[in-house]
Amino acid sequence: MSKRPPKVIVTKIGFDGHDRGSRVITACLRDAGMEVIYTPPWQEISTVVKLATEEDADVIGISSLATDHLIIPQLMKALRDAGLDDVKVVVGGIIPAKDEKELINAGVAKVFHPGSSLEDIVNTVRSLAESRTHSEV
């Protein structure tokens, strides 16, 4: 029986198109041995839910640089409604401290700010993915 590599979706929801950050993270997770589904920016919440369902993703990474993080609580609700509350969500980008609390309350597992080390991101994503797979029977 082989363990599968963590399966991660890296995406952006909302109207901002600055995707350099999500591309850097995609390459970095790939080099850490993960299977990464990369999407272009401007995804709808329903699309991310369908993507996470069909791909059986362990972790969803949302990049937000221009207030798109404000709709992440809606994404969390949509994931719960689809029965995907075991899928972990992490957020990276420009997130004001007062909003971070709100995101964590909405169920986001971790928020990464500018200056976060790639090593920290890789380790967090990996342990979140493993905690999801290990909860399976």
Partner: peptide, 29 residues
């Protein structure tokens, strides 16, 4: 998959954008 790290970027479905919300379509990478 990378022969070195085992990692992969699964990018095929990004070009299948228009069908992302259609229940008659199931895409798996």
């Amino acid at each position: 998959s990378s022969p070195i790290t085992g990692g992969a970027v699964l990018g095929d479905r990004i070009r299948m954008g228009a069908m992302q919300s259609d229940d008659g379509v199931f895409i798996r990478s």
